[in-house]
Write a protein that binds this DNA or RNA. Structure first.
Length: 229
DNA sequence: TGAGGATCGGCATTTACTTCA
DNA sequence: TGTGAAGTAAATGCCGATCCT
């Protein structure tokens, strides 16, 4: 369409109905959709440059038989639509990432629960074996005492030694199971308790879960990779 | 050289209209 | 055939940058 044709077209339409509401007439006149060819050309230009230099705008307008103002508005609307689509894309990516993290978190939470249960079970086992050994040792001690003289009023010094021996045994067991000593075990349990369910059970409460503090505290004594080994 | 008005272009939002299911 | 949703061209208002006096 030549530029002259375009204006002829516009003015003939305007003149055709002078009784129409002025604003409405202007609107319906302007509301003409661009041709496929025009849109195609504009799209191609937009792909290489989302903003037009004034000179280029005039040139494009002339080539497509549009007003420079129309080209400017088309680019304006196009940028707005493009931005919306970009935002949608980014939102979808973020949502996918969030879902991925949430499911990973779920898995890790279950793993943690399993580890805590295992730890509890092992602790119970250790306590139980400590008691059993204590009973065994006391039985042996009583036998030994009955054949020994020089110890008075049943308060047996060897029992103290035996108890110490049992404690040493227990520490050996813990060291074997957990790889660290009693004190370290205690700290570890504190960390586990701190990270307990109140903050981790639902994503609504994530705000109160301070992983930095937790990790900082833990990493002072144990590298994080030890936690998973 | 800084202040202030005019102009221009961009963006966000809204309006008016078309198209299509 | 009427209707509502979606798409689109254009209008409006505001803001920042630039130019000129």
């Amino acid at each position: 369409m030549e530029e002259g044709d375009y204006f002829d077209c516009c003015f003939s339409e305007i003149n055709s109905d002078m009784t129409m509401n002025k604003k409405k007439m202007k609107k319906s006149n302007n509301q003409k959709r661009f041709s496929e060819e025009q849109i195609k050309s504009l799209e191609v230009i937009f792909e290489s440059e989302t903003r037009l230099e004034p000179r280029k705008k005039v040139q494009v307008a002339r080539e497509l038989g549009l007003q420079p103002r129309q080209v400017a508005i088309w680019f304006q609307n196009k940028r707005a639509r493009w931005k919306t689509k970009q935002l949608e894309k980014e939102y979808n990516i973020l949502r996918a990432n969030y879902n991925n993290l949430a499911s990973q978190f779920d898995i890790m939470k279950k793993e943690k629960q399993a580890l805590v249960s295992e730890l509890q079970r092992l602790n119970e086992e250790v306590t139980k074996s400590k008691e059993e050994r204590r009973e065994e040792c006391c039985g042996e001690q009583r036998v030994a005492l009955s054949s020994t003289t020089g110890l008075e009023n049943g308060k047996c010094e060897p029992e103290v030694r035996i108890n110490q021996g049992v404690d040493l045994c227990n520490n050996d067991i813990k060291t074997e199971y957990f790889g660290f000593e009693e004190e370290s075990n205690h700290e570890f349990m504190n960390i586990v308790e701190q990270a307990d369910d109140s903050c981790l059970t639902s994503s609504d409460n994530w705000g109160c879960f301070n992983s930095d503090t937790l990790l900082d505290q833990y990493s002072i004594n144990y590298p994080w990779w030890d936690f998973w080994s």
